[in-house]
């Protein structure tokens, strides 16, 4: 049983460890996020983030979440996003697709694809890229865990990212969580998409359910349901029903529905 005195000492020691570990990037993030309005915050650069999803068939969703964040990091000086994947892993998950990037709202000419033959080269390329001041984000798609990608390697990349100000995203799959020095670890699941106006059967704007497994960016919130819209990431859960897309007041006249159906808005 701990006495209050011991608890105080423990807390003090934890602070010291936090200082030693120097995670200024995350502390700064928290301050900035606190100042933000509600909704999903735009996370600043310099973070090492891992995005876990259960299976490679969700690869589209996790890439979407990473690119949604990377798009917000691009500035006039930081003009490129790098996508890294081992050449042999492409068959399972596919490659980012130019017209798809356009329809996602991302300029494909800003993306550079790196396809190294082995993990050593991939880690070298990631480090070289994240150290470059013109790179907004590096997205490394790791389909299978590899012994070279251990705590030391991720710590190294995290320090580089904090130093240069670009963000590093690891897209990873499966239920295992190998040791890593990532500041944020997300668990992402695709979620049923938003309703499409005028077509109930069609998939609408993509939605993801993300849960923060490590690190925190905002007090008492670790789970979001996000929707990717033209204006960025929208937090569905925090929206009040009147604001949500379901009941949003349309700014134009609603066309008459087909004659054999009842009008849905009447």
């Amino acid at each position: 049983m701990q006495t209050p005195n011991q608890q105080q000492r423990l807390a003090a020691l934890r602070d010291v460890i936090a200082d030693i570990e120097r995670k200024p990037a995350l502390a700064e993030t928290r301050q900035r996020v606190a100042a933000d309005a509600d909704g999903f915050p735009l996370l600043p650069g310099g973070l090492l983030q891992e995005i876990y999803t259960d299976e490679p068939r969700n690869a589209g969703a996790s890439l979407g979440f990473a690119l949604a964040q990377a798009k917000g990091l691009m500035t006039k000086q930081r003009v490129a996003v790098l996508y890294l994947q081992l050449a042999r892993d492409t068959k399972g998950t596919g490659m980012p697709y130019g017209p798809g990037l356009v329809s996602f709202g991302f300029d494909p000419s800003a993306m550079v694809f790196i396809r190294p033959a082995n993990m050593g080269d991939l880690l070298w390329a990631a480090e070289e890229a994240i150290a470059c001041r013109a790179v907004a984000a590096v997205v490394a798609d790791i389909v299978r865990p590899h012994k070279n990608l251990d705590f030391t390697a991720s710590r190294r990349l995290g320090l580089r990212a904090a130093q240069s100000g670009g963000s590093m995203f690891f897209l990873r799959y499966g239920a295992q969580r190998p040791a890593s020095a990532a500041q944020l670890r997300w668990h992402l699941m695709p979620s049923a998409s938003a309703a499409k106006p005028y077509d109930d059967h069609a998939p609408g704007a993509p939605r993801w359910q993300v849960r923060l497994e490590r690190g925190s960016i905002r007090k008492e919130q670790a789970q979001w349901v996000l929707e990717w819209t033209k204006h960025g990431l929208a937090d569905i859960a925090s929206q009040s029903p009147e604001q949500s897309l379901f009941g949003a007041a349309l700014s134009r006249a609603v066309p008459a529905q087909l004659a054999d159906r009842l009008s849905q808005t009447a």
């Binding site: 589209g60 890439l63 979407g64 492409t90 596919g94 697709y97 017209p99 356009v102 300029d107 494909p108």
Partner: peptide
Amino acid sequence: GTHGPALNRPLRLLP
């Protein structure tokens, strides 16, 4: 790049 009309295309395409 100059892109054509924004079509509804997937983010990842299988090889």
